[in-house]
Amino acid sequence: MIAPLQTLSLPALLLMLSFSAHAFDFGSVLGGGDDSGGGSNVFDIGEMISGVKDISRTITGIDEEDEIEIGRDAAAVLLGASKPVNDPELQRYVNRIGRWVVNQTDRAHLPWRFAVLRSNAVNAFATPGGNIFITDGLLDLLTSEAELAAVISHEVAHVIQKHHIKAMSSLNTSGLSGVIKLASATREGRSNQMTTQLVGEVKDMYLRGLDKGDEFEADSMGTVIASRAGYDPFALMAVLQTLDSIDPENSGLALLYKTHPPASDRLDKLEPVLEQFDEPAEESPMLQKRFNKYVGKHS
């Protein structure tokens, strides 16, 4: 079932998708993919093709079940380093925003989970298969729901493009097949423990970070995803400007800057992406109200 798919032709890719064992949500490939957004479910062949192109460009030849499995292992490791904040309303709130955001992508069918983690470091993490974590420390810097959605969308873009699988493959001596083998071994021995090797490689990946180009791509795609969801396209840029204004020697930023390009470089790369956006639609005051309610009271 697992084939090296790096350079699949478009017809082969479509064939593969149509025979995929997973319930591939064709509707969501058509853009929007959500019924509650109002008026966005127009059949758009252009968007479909560009969606397929996105997949073929970055596909790493991994079965989605393996991807999800590795993601669960990676998430368990991150949760070993920090626990979710004990605030059910806040956690529910970030899941609501996250779900709304991922429904605008062609991978809405993944088992997405979002959580705020107790940490005064400024950072956010994603795992393959759709686990997304944002630290308390980063949440503290955000001023609006649009900014929160922008951070989430950046992480969602990593998942959609399988950037972590790519990074792990380049760390594993056997490449992708080595990573997949580890995932299978872990799945079979789930009742016992994760393999020490997989745990080690996951940690290594988070300590080294993703490819620099993939971070820029996630900024750019994340901006588009958040905008599709109706949020202010400039919110991610505002977050990066905030990060840029913090002393990079601040210990709360240590791991972030070890694993990400400097905020100023990210701002430079993001600028041209924003040229395409006109002014955002006026956001309802409800957004700020509920952001204040769920994020503001949390401390």
Partner: peptide, 15 residues
């Protein structure tokens, strides 16, 4: 979703 309106926007250009 407090009135958020979805939009169709391609990942192009840029990405």
């Amino acid at each position: 979703n407090s009135g958020l309106q979805t939009r169709q926007i391609d990942y192009q250009p840029g990405t």
